[in-house]
Amino acid sequence: MNRVEAIKDIYTRHVGSFFVLSNGLTAREAAHFIDQPNSFYLLHGMGESLAVAIGLASSQPQLSVVLIEGDGNTLMGMAAWSMTPPSNLTYYVLANGIFETTGGQPLPALPCLPPWCMVVPIEPGKAETPNPPSPTDIWHTSQAWLRQHGFVKGE
């Protein structure tokens, strides 16, 4: 299974949820090949995707939040595990064992992961993608979905 297939499969399993995607190829390929408004694509914030997803889930307990991040991001953000995961957060790690976005440097092995973290092995490799959407577009599109579904207020 490649990255796009894995992400599509996760979206199919969680219809109606809101998705947070880690920076790098995870967000980039999801934005291009899946392109769903119930998605927040992180363009930077290396290692922060779990913290972001925890903050979102804890601030909106009725919202089902799904985090999809690469295993490089997982290693960068392990101190965020100390924030007890809210029950409305589902956490997937796409594991190919390398920092693919930066050229395929090998990763140290993932340590013993918490039981609420689901590892999905994926093949190394990446798809050609255009530049991801702008931060403004990402913000407004995802906020519109959250507003439409009654989770945030405002214009």
């Binding site: 947070v20 927040f40 914030g45 922060e48 995707s49 779990l50 913290a51 972001v52 997803a53 925890i54 903050g55 979102l56 889930a57 804890s58 601030s59 953000g77 965020a80 924030m83 995802s142 906020q143 959250l146």
Partner: peptide, 8 residues
């Protein structure tokens, strides 16, 4: 990071 999630 968590504060940004809350902001979303």
């Amino acid at each position: 990071g968590a504060a940004f999630g809350a902001r979303i």
